[in-house]
């Protein structure tokens, strides 16, 4: 090939961080500062590793659903049906286990099927019929919530033995235990859900970074028209993002179910909000094209840490949780908006 030199074109600008990395960095710094602050000023439980693991235990489901949310948001979409799907999954599995005397493995399949069904229908509407994802998933959310009460109205605890055994399974984290007041060494533990959540995070990180599909998510989110011209199957890519999000909502739903062990129409209320907030705090851009799955994990942890801090400084009335999450989301949205408008 002939050598052609372009005169008069400005030289590349100095090395700049990509948007993804910058937003991730902000999140990590804020989380570390917050947690360290809590350790120093609040002490209480924050010094014990188990407190951290409890945050993980309580939020494993949120981590998984938030990962799904991040995928969709990276492609420039949104899915606010995840909370509803989690509730529906819990209720359906609970009813199946207790009323139909089913086995645990099938209940897991039910959870996955529900998630996939929501993902597939919503994905089809969004990707192939080009309907706004927000409207589609708003309908999805109301449908899931409505269906939950249709399946069963009153909340109840699951008493299926195999399930209760699975629910109680604890995985010891070596070397992280603490000595309690009686001088007895207590092992630190996590629930099964946490292991699943961590696997999901690692797997998705791989998918997003190295696979053709994962890179397609970013391209589609960056500029849909361009992605099409670059030879990416935009419709299928968007469909896959919603499908995966649905699937992850199903998995998250089962983890949630495993954690609480009951079915209720009011389960996971506002979870979509927490998932969106976690993704955004984790550096996923609402406008699409930018995001990092580790960021999402840190986002979930940040969100639940601040909730823990708020309740441990005495603001434990129910409304403070909602207000805190909302305030945190608001803050990060504004940070994103300001940073990105300055950069471009």
């Amino acid at each position: 090939m002939a050598k052609l030199k372009l005169a008069g074109v400005s030289a590349p600008s100095s090395k700049k961080m990509t948007d993804s990395n910058l937003l991730l960095l902000i999140t990590v710094v804020i989380f570390v500062v917050m947690y360290a602050g809590a350790m120093i000023f609040l002490q209480k439980g924050f010094l014990k590793p188990q407190t951290f693991f409890n945050i993980m235990n309580a939020n494993a489901a949120l981590i998984v659903t938030s990962c799904g949310m991040s995928l969709v948001m990276i492609t420039g979409g949104i899915d606010i049906s995840v909370g509803g799907v989690v509730a529906l999954v819990s209720m359906c599995c609970a009813v199946y286990l207790d009323y139909a005397g089913g086995n645990v493995f099938v209940s897991l399949l039910i959870a996955l099927a529900i998630g996939l069904a929501f993902g597939a229908v919503q994905g089809y509407l969004v990707a192939y019929l080009d309907i706004q994802p927000f409207i589609v998933s708003l309908a999805g959310m109301f449908f899931a919530r409505g269906m939950t009460t249709i399946v069963h109205t009153a909340p109840f605890n699951v008493e299926n033995e195999a399930f209760v055994a699975l629910k109680g399974t604890r995985i010891t984290v070596p070397g992280m235990g603490t000595v309690n007041r009686l001088g007895k060494y207590v092992d630190a533990y996590v629930e099964i859900g946490v292991i699943v959540a961590i696997l999901v995070v690692i797997l998705l990180f791989f998918v997003l970074k190295w696979t053709r599909m994962g890179r397609g998510f970013y391209a589609v989110g960056g500029n849909r028209q361009s992605a099409l011209m670059l030879g990416i199957n935009v419709k299928r890519t968007r469909f896959m993002a919603h499908l995966l999000c649905g699937l992850l909502a199903g998995i998250g739903g089962y983890i949630y179910f495993l954690h609480v062990g009951s079915g209720s129409a009011s389960h996971a209320s506002g979870m979509e909000m927490n998932a969106i907030a976690s993704s955004i705090i984790g550096g996923t851009l609402l406008t699409g094209g930018v995001g990092n799955i580790f960021g999402t994990l840190v986002g979930v942890l940040s969100l639940s840490t601040i909730q823990n801090i708020v309740s441990s400084i005495g603001l434990d009335q129910a409304w403070w949780t909602g207000i805190t999450v909302a305030a945190m989301l608001c803050l990060f949205l504004i940070i994103q908006s300001v940073i990105l408008s300055r950069r471009h």
Partner: peptide
Amino acid sequence: ITLCPNLTVAEN
């Protein structure tokens, strides 16, 4: 321009 602004030059 029909490239994606959020990706790197090489990826584009």
